[in-house]
């Protein structure tokens, strides 16, 4: 069962968005998030919504998967809205006891809610259509210029992909250790939160020891297969832009122009 967990939340499908170069998707998501914060009026949000809906339609991901991520931020969204609603000064609308609701407050709260919802939807659209592996590759390639200021870009991306590879293995191991300890009378399920947290200590110690042992073995296996960092390394699956990727870049530029013109300048 534990072997089947999917990481991130990749949704397997064959769509234009799935086939796009991960670099394009990363840039698009980044630009989309920026655009949400420069928009000043509701027309801008309508353009952003259209962009997002087009993306969702192209991705072939059922909307229910996309909005599943929303549950996690519901509480945050609620609090943000409350704060904006009650704490924005301006023209008074309703007032009772010590609380006043202003016209500006309502506007601010609605804007903030739209921003957050779009932000989450946009970034989960990216993680839903890109495998974690692909995402790491894209990041490595986009961040390559940082190598000039000695950021170990290749090493970071290698660490990320090794972590992704070992998460299911370590989960399985945790499960095994837990069962072994439960068989000897350990209790992970009852008692207060503090008591339960304490009972995890004897679980973590063997898990850490085994993780270090694995790390040692893996490092040796990598060295034995001539691994010597990123220099002089070739790629089995190099990232190469195709025609659709250039078209997608054009679409992003067009979107940004529209947002700036309609969302900031004209109105």
């Amino acid at each position: 069962m534990l072997r089947d967990i999917t990481l991130g939340q990749y949704y397997r499908a064959d769509s234009v968005l799935h086939r796009l170069d991960p670099r394009v998707k990363l840039v698009a998501t980044f630009m989309f998030i920026i655009s949400l914060f420069i928009v000043k009026n509701f027309i801008g949000y309508i353009i952003a919504a259209l962009f997002l809906v087009t993306g969702i339609a192209l991705s072939k991901v059922p909307p229910k998967f996309i909005f599943r991520g929303m549950k996690a931020i519901f509480f945050l969204l609620f609090i943000t809205m409350l704060f904006n609603l009650f704490l924005t000064p301006g023209k008074e609308l309703v007032s009772f006891w010590k609380i006043t609701i202003t016209y500006e407050g309502i506007k601010m709260a609605v804007m903030m809610a739209i921003r957050l919802v779009f932000l989450i939807t946009g970034s989960s659209l990216m993680t839903l259509t890109t495998t974690p592996n692909n995402l790491t590759d894209g990041l490595e390639s986009l961040l390559r210029p940082l190598k000039a200021i000695r950021v170990p870009v290749h090493e970071i991306s290698m660490m990320m992909s090794i972590a992704l590879r070992f998460i299911p293995i370590l989960m399985e191991e945790t499960d095994k250790i837990m069962k072994a300890q439960m068989a000897r009378g350990a209790d992970f399920e009852s008692g207060s939160i503090i008591k339960r947290a304490k009972s995890l200590v004897p679980l973590l110690v063997p898990l850490f020891i085994s993780a270090f042992r694995r790390a040692n073995d893996l490092a040796m296996a990598m060295e034995a297969r001539c691994y010597r960092g990123g220099d002089g390394r070739t790629k089995m699956k190099p990232l190469i832009y195709a025609k659709t990727d250039y078209m997608a870049y054009a679409a992003i530029v067009l979107y940004l122009v529209l947002i700036v013109v309609f969302g900031r300048i004209l109105f």
């Binding site: 592996n133 590879r165 694995r214 296996a221 990598m222």
Partner: peptide, 8 residues
């Protein structure tokens, strides 16, 4: 397990 690096 400890010598396979790739996810595929």
């Amino acid at each position: 397990d400890n010598q396979i690096i790739g996810q595929v």
